[in-house]
Design a binder for these strands. Sequence first.
DNA 1: TACTAGCGAAGACTCACAAT
DNA 2: ATTGTGAGTCTTCGCTAGTA
Length: 216
Amino acid sequence: MAPRAYWKGSLKLSLVSCPVALYPATTSVEKTHFHMINKETGNRLKQQMVDAETGDVVEGDQKARGYELKKGEYVEVDKEELEAVQIESTHTIDIDSFVPVEEIDKRYIDRPYYIAPDGKAGVDAFAVIRDAMKNKGRVALARIVLTNREHIIAVEPLGKGLIGITLRYPYEVRDEDEYFDDVRNPKISKDMIELASHILDSKAGHFDLSKYKDEY
DNA sequence: TACTAGCGAAGACTCACAAT
DNA sequence: ATTGTGAGTCTTCGCTAGTA
């Protein structure tokens, strides 16, 4: 049995839809991480919010969000106002187009999720959408609302299920020109390229990360 | 017994801040 | 500018109690 779903909703392709569950494909629970402690006592430390001007400790119920109008001037945005602008979760993965697999730009890749049918209903529709994409070599681009935020998600077949990869928005991705513009394109001899090609061949392998281990 | 509402736990995500 | 940390929030699920 699959572990607890992170999100439930339906996968929708025009008139066809089927209930699905989303499971984060990655986890960091096994990663080494640290806590802050008091060197003297060995006890855990905790954070406390402090008024930036007066230095007074601020209790939880006095905390609010503010938007900076101009330097040093804030307006409070209260809970109702925040809720008003929040997008409502539609609980649908709404497919709007199918693009060729190879067109997915690696820079936009954010987080992977497993998508499986949720319950018996809609398994047929699920299989149809999955196999159609497999046959055509296409990936679905869809919208999904996760924790109050709308994401673009690329959905493609993975074994018996689907994998959904949330994508970054264009404004989050930097232009490569900024970094590559100064790169010279020198004249290189054929021999050098051949030599490099030989080394490449001798080190050719397959994508298998099992031999790499996080030693930290 | 079957169903529903309410509560809390667990895990994932976002945010702000401090250190580098 | 980036990274790591804790706090807070979001979502689902399991448990319990109440009701039909």
